[in-house]
Design a protein around this nucleic acid. Structure first.
Lengths: 210, 210
DNA sequence: ATGACATGTTGCCATCGTAAACATTTCACT
DNA sequence: AGTGAAATGTTTACGATGGCAACATGTCAT
């Protein structure tokens, strides 16, 4: 670094972050297969083995990208939720955000849940996933349905809602839901059970003020 | 075919079928990455370009395997269903079969819904998928819930149930559902809503005899 | 019989991920 | 300040993969 303007410094400076960003861009453009270490390195302007210093392997890079995906995913779910005060509307807003993100970023969304590409036991990825899960979990708190009062009731609610919206998103992305005779695809709102909204089937929580 | 015992005929005889079977075996052993055209060809005892004559490309082979997967998937769902006469038990049996198949054949199951590996617009694959869908569809017929009487009610029921069980299976396979504080994972029965079993919430169908 | 077609093989190429050896920069410690 | 270890990038090379072209062999309709 002899001149004040670094023409092409030997060290990139923030390569790790740049690789994740460019990697996401590549994935959005051409899907997961479009993301090769060599293409990515060329795009950022480094040698094709430079990513190895930061991620160890392609799998490590994909794992890091998936973690970033979960962060964006959580943000997408939160969008619109804070505007609503009604628990029903908040839940629906989160669900809608979930599906909207999946449709807007299909390859990234697929990567996030692909144990084929990611190391699901990676600490960062798990933390990011938990953050995303926490959004849905918080919104689902207090919702009542026929299994809410059983042991692990809160967790049952979370897993049930997550399974429902995740399954819809996956099937929708796979292009399988468009098999209807009319050719139209049901929206998520069309299959979202209303039962989850009933706030008082068993015993209403006294201090339930969100 | 000059001798009654074909030592190693130039033509395999039923290579297409053999490739699918061996391909599934490879996938079950080492996951999708374990299935390379070369490894598969070596396993069957042909040159590495022989599969090309039958499937065109690796993608075509994977698509054919996925179609076979859907056939087995449909069979797994049917298992246990015919024993039951109660609609609730029949539905639960199909759902259980769905999850059981996914857990017993995780890689194959993942392949079946991966537009990354398969050509989802392939005629055979779509037909196989429809057959599998028809199993669930038939069992879901007549079930009542809060959206069963709206337009496209039957299809809403199918898609809702499919999304729920498929999402659970996918999340379960991804190893994401084991994040509970107790470390235990909720079974599908723990999150299966009972509401779908109530046969008369709105207006009971007169001829509802399954 | 014979020519078209299906089926299978050999050889080759571009691309990829990974690894080792080396170069350059940064940084902690004295 | 000086120095060695660590971090960060590069170069070169290797093995594996999917796809393609050219060719070989068997099958089948006419």
């Amino acid at each position: 670094m002899s001149s004040s303007v670094p023409d092409r410094p030997y060290h990139h400076g923030d390569l790790k972050h740049a690789l994740v960003q460019a990697g996401i861009a590549l994935i959005e453009e051409g899907g997961i297969p479009a993301l090769s270490l060599r293409a990515l390195a060329a795009r950022v302007g480094v040698s094709h083995t430079a990513p190895r210093n930061h991620f160890g392997s392609l799998r490590g890079l994909l794992t890091a990208i998936a973690a970033e995906g979960f962060h964006r995913h959580a943000r997408a779910m939160c969008e619109g939720v804070s505007d609503q005060s009604d628990p029903q509307a908040r839940l629906m807003a989160a669900m809608t955000g979930y599906v909207r993100f999946a449709r807007a970023h299909p390859a990234l969304f697929g990567l996030m849940f692909s144990s084929l590409h990611c190391d699901m036991r990676d600490a960062e990825l798990m933390a990011a996933g938990r953050d995303s899960y926490a959004v849905l979990s918080g919104i689902a708190r207090g919702l009542d349905w026929d299994k809410a009062d059983l042991p692990d009731g809160q967790r049952r609610t979370e897993v049930m809602l997550w399974s429902l919206v995740h399954g819809y998103a996956q099937l929708s992305l796979a292009g399988i839901l468009a098999n209807g005779p009319s050719g139209t695809m049901l929206d998520f709102a069309d299959i979202m059970p209303a039962f989850a909204y009933r706030p008082a089937t068993a015993s209403p929580a006294p201090g339930d003020r969100s």
